[in-house]
Amino acid sequence: MRGSYERLTIAGKQAVWAWAFLAVPLVFYGVVRFYPTAQAFYLSFTSWNLLGEARFIGVDNYVRLTQDPVFWKVAVNSFEYVALGLPISLVLSFVIAYYLDRVRFGHALLRALYFLPHLTTAAAMAWVWRWLYQPVPVGVFNGVLADIGLPAQPFLRSTDQALPAVLAPAIWAMLGFQVVIFLAGLKAIPRSYYEAADIDGAGAWRVLREITLPLLRPTLVFLIVISSIAFLRIFDYVYNMTNGDGGPLDSTKPLVLSIYQTAFGRFDMGYASAQTVVLFFILLALTLLQMRLLRKPR
């Protein structure tokens, strides 16, 4: 045995070690993740209501999806959550982390302030946010608008504003996470680069564009991919701020809420699985695309 290992090339030895390291995790993922995923794929071609055998019905569930106007609405909503949530949260968290990185005085306190929202539970905080969105005299946001002379807004009671209004607390809770990752990334940029820039007399904007951002790429890749997945899988805040409906008129309903209602409100597991499969491929395609676009330049 030992002899045959010794005879391997370096690459061969590496492969042996790699698979040895991966063995236990792969078995784990296989049982706990891949198998249920495969099951969802199978169920998406069946009609199954929890009890008894799943009945194979071919692509009926998928045909039904394409003809379901609510599904299209829900898919568009999910994209809106990402299209709005991703840039807004990343720009905000980067700006915060960028300046936080430069602050010495009270650094730990400031960082804790921004991280605190991430520690809260959605069910409790959604309740608070619903009150913040109330009309005057109760609602704080409308109170502020009134104070600065702007007209009151319906927020959650509007098919146009409800989605951003539900997204806001989700971003709020996510910022702390993104800021911490950005901070770790910023701290990791070797100081020598800044020294060099300093000597060159480069302006802050140029340093940011030519040193900071390129060197942050691994951090950015991670955050973009993880945040996109999080926004596409948004559920907690929508569920808790709209009485579990995703209303008004489906204007805030995301894919995962639709899946949840189909599976546990109607026990229609086949149709719920079909929606899950669609979500899976959207996420997979988006992730692969992002990783390709953000690849190391050669």
């Binding site: 690459a11 790699a18 792969l26 991919v225």
Partner: peptide, 29 residues
Amino acid sequence: KFDFRGRGLVFVAILSTLMIPTEMLVIPW
């Protein structure tokens, strides 16, 4: 840090576990 055949596939496969909502996993679990 290891270079071996199938690395990319393993990575994508593990990443893909993030793409199924927990709600759909609880029944098999």
